[in-house]
Amino acid sequence: MEIAWGSVLAFLGIAIAVVFPGIGSARALGRLGEHAAGVVTEMSDRFGATLILQALPGTQGIYGLLIGFMIMTKIGVFDLANFVPLTLYQGSMFFLAAVPIAVVGLLSAIAQGKACAGGMGIIAKRPEDLAKAITYPAMVETYAVLAFLASLLMLNGIPL
């Protein structure tokens, strides 16, 4: 059987879209979990606030999965009966569409995690300032959102 390199590239695109932002989110959430546990050891009533703060860099992983899922839908992974092998040209476009969220997702999750870690300090000292603690990490989130948007629009424009 001849290998449809286009489809292979598209699958590679799915893989990087899911893997890299996932790694970034997991790393950030793990670190933040440690910080949050530290705060809660002293002040158990801060659980809710620290949980929200910990969850913030989780969105990159979700954006990555979404792009992966949308590629899957578009190339017909769920509908194998009608699965059409892609040309190399189409495949590389799918791959490239995954690049923004893969790269920016990974790096912005880690960066956002650092901003959240700073926010944990706010929660520990001034729990009433939760909104402020959330706003700084939200600034970082912007770039994940933009990358997601770029990936999405690129994906949308691929002719099949």
Partner: peptide
Amino acid sequence: LSYSRLLALGLASGVIGVVIND
């Protein structure tokens, strides 16, 4: 350009919803 996030966030919640249904 910053307002493009409105599109992205709206799509994200919608698409995740679709994924859950699928």
